[in-house]
Design a protein around this nucleic acid. Structure first.
Lengths: 133, 133
DNA sequence: ATGAGTGTATAATGACAGTAATACACTGGC
DNA sequence: GCCAGTGTATTACTGTCATTATACACTCAT
């Protein structure tokens, strides 16, 4: 029984796909260091049983995290949190944000908001999240 | 034959739903004044024929635009561009942006970007769009 | 070798979104 | 009244996404 299980909670009725909830939560645990680099993740069967979902859903999450370079596969043995590799450059990480930012700006312009008014909303969200963490 | 038809172009293979493409384009034409308040829109049949899509798809777009207060329905007669009503308050329009901003900020935090680095991406998009318009 | 542990490929199912075909209800000019 | 023009309710089809059940391939300790 992995202690990690206690920190995971899925809401099947939220409309957000299970695999995405799980992926986000695992990624957050890894980013925060609660899952340390080099440590093993629970097996797909353990995690699936604990969360009462299907193995394959867990497996897909692991595959996606591996594609992101967050975890590594050890064939026949399990999945391990990757050593923190040399972080991608700032520009590269910012590039990942562009599609979301485009949506935001486009919608803001439709609402006839000025650039500063759009940015203001973003800063407000950042502040709100910082306050609640 | 409405001249408006010439300004509309749909890309069925883009992955973006037809109704959303059409809605965005019509809203842009209205916001920019190319479709003036009080003027009539093409009928659903005209528009559907011109764009080679189904009537109902056009009708759904009209319904959504009406729900947004952008156009008005004249029963049995057609749809008309609404007079520019007293614009909603700033706070109300900004509230529409919150879900998109939350996505953006959450993703930015996962990428370990600072608040300023997130905002920088947004401003970059705004500048890019201004330059190309 | 074998057994119990890994992760995964494949295929079936269920839900939902987008689009379409058809039939209906309304308006206004003749 | 009728007819040709509006928009729309209903229904059905289709494709895609999320999830699952099952069977397979690998590793390691014994």
């Amino acid at each position: 029984m992995h202690e990690i299980l206690l920190q995971l909670r899925l809401s099947p009725s939220s409309g957000v796909p299970l695999y995405r909830q799980l992926q986000d939560q695992l990624q957050a645990l890894i980013a925060s260091g609660k899952l340390a680099p080099g440590s093993m993740l629970p097996s797909v069967r353990q995690l699936a049983a604990g969360l009462e979902i299907n193995m394959m859903t867990v497996s897909k999450v692991y595959s996606r995290l591996e594609a992101d370079g967050v975890i590594e596969r050890l064939r026949g043995t399990g999945m391990r949190v990757a050593e923190r590799t040399a972080s991608r450059t700032l520009a590269l990480r910012q590039a990942d944000l562009i599609p979301l930012a485009e949506d935001l700006v486009m919608r803001g312009e439709q609402l006839e908001l000025s650039p500063d008014q759009i940015v203001q909303v973003v800063r407000q969200i950042i502040a709100r999240r910082k306050a609640s963490s």
